[in-house]
Amino acid sequence: MPATAATPAQGGDTASVSVFHGVPGLTVDVYANGRELLPDFRPGTLTEPQSLPAGTYDIEVFADGEGPDGDPALQKSVEVPAGANATLAAHLNAQGDPVLTAFVNDTSKVPAGRSRVTVRHVAAAPAVDVRAGGKPVIEGLTNPNEKSLEVPAGTVSADVVLAGTDTVAIGPADLNLAEGTTTIVYAWGSAEDGNLALKTQTIGGMESAPGGVDAGESGAMAADNESATAWLVWGTAGAVAVAGLLAARRRYVRSD
């Protein structure tokens, strides 16, 4: 990260920001507040999260080498709140024009054994459905919106179809949905140009402890010990009583 872009502020005044380039065919330079943040940024790339001071950023995207004095291809003022985890996406809108969208990533805890999937429609394409193992799990998603769901962790085969149809637009692709993480899937590119594709971003550290461990069934371990104790106690008592009675009887016989 260029030193000019940001010196992370103290404590909770920072945000974690990654940038996704989803405009096909255009290598760009990204500037924040007039300073170069990402040089030679290629389509389909996603940056590692960077820690940036919270605040408002004037983001400008120039065709490679044309900044910062030329006309930006894209420009947007983006609010980065303290503590946020965000992804800034340069992508096409449904009509095929480049736009900038700031997405806030959900980093809340995921229940034990599960994984969160977020799908973002950032492609020049109509509404889509997302299917997992052939079954629609997200329906009618439109540009530039997102939908999330929690699923059991594991690998799923996912594809993207035109909403309400079986016409596959992207995929299928295997998604490894790791436990306790958020996997963000970007459907990007252009339907018209035939370059629709998926890009995934994984954010970890959202795991939860499971609800407990039920490792007993019959109570045998508890009962076993209790009944053993009971047997011993009654057995001892019985033996002593019998011995006592025998002794008493012997005396009785002798005194006869």
Partner: peptide, 24 residues
């Protein structure tokens, strides 16, 4: 006489049982 001995035996048994119960 016999019943007294039996009583003692039962009492001893009870004490022993209690002892075993605590020491188990």
């Amino acid at each position: 006489m016999a019943s007294a001995a039996a009583c003692v035996a039962v009492a001893v048994a009870a004490v022993l049982a209690a002892l075993v119960w605590t020491l188990w």
